[in-house]
């Protein structure tokens, strides 16, 4: 990224832990609910499986202020360029959770209309299976993402 890449590791170690802890505890998702998975994503924010406990209830409509894109639902051919544009508009650091079978691999719709996996156009960090995944499974995916964020080195830039 910059100066942090050239400093010896021992100087940035504690800062890295602190910064990653701060990042993982307030990930702001971008509203990218497409289909049925979006409803389960909304249920995750609902009172029972409260996502606000993890600092993630602030869904940001503007991608400039979002950290996480939860691709919740099937991505059609017409929507794919829009998805890439929203991903490009997000600022670093950014992560992508591919929620559900349709976003991960095209799901049950192996046809002309659906992109067979959103990882064809954006790099995905966590794949959450299910059709649709229940809120518990989505939260498990989010915890995996938190672990990944915690271990993310400050010095390593993303290779995309």
């Amino acid at each position: 990224m910059g100066l942090e890449e050239r400093l010896p590791a021992v100087l940035t170690l504690n800062a890295e832990k602190l910064i990653n802890w701060a990042r993982k505890n307030s990930v702001w998702p971008a509203t990218f609910g497409l289909a049925c998975c979006a409803i389960e994503m909304m249920q995750t924010v609902a009172p029972r499986h409260d996502l606000a406990r993890y600092g993630m209830e602030r869904f940001s409509a503007s991608p400039r202020q979002a950290d996480l894109m939860i691709v919740a639902g099937r991505v059609s051919q017409k929507m794919a360029p829009v998805l890439r544009q929203i991903y490009d508009q997000m600022t670093e650091p950014k992560w992508v959770i591919s929620m559900g079978a349709c976003a991960s691999c095209g799901g049950m719709f192996n046809n002309y209309a659906i992109l067979q996996g959103v990882d064809q156009i954006v790099p995905v960090d966590v794949y959450v299976p299910g059709c649709p995944p229940t809120p518990e499974i989505l939260m498990m995916g989010i915890f995996q993402l938190h672990e990944k964020i915690q271990k993310m080195p400050l010095r390593l830039g993303r290779a995309h």
């Binding site: 095209g106 002309y112 209309a113």
Partner: peptide, 9 residues
């Protein structure tokens, strides 16, 4: 005559 499409799994 239009194929269903998709990818081979």
């Amino acid at each position: 005559d239009y194929p269903v499409g998709g990818v081979p799994v």
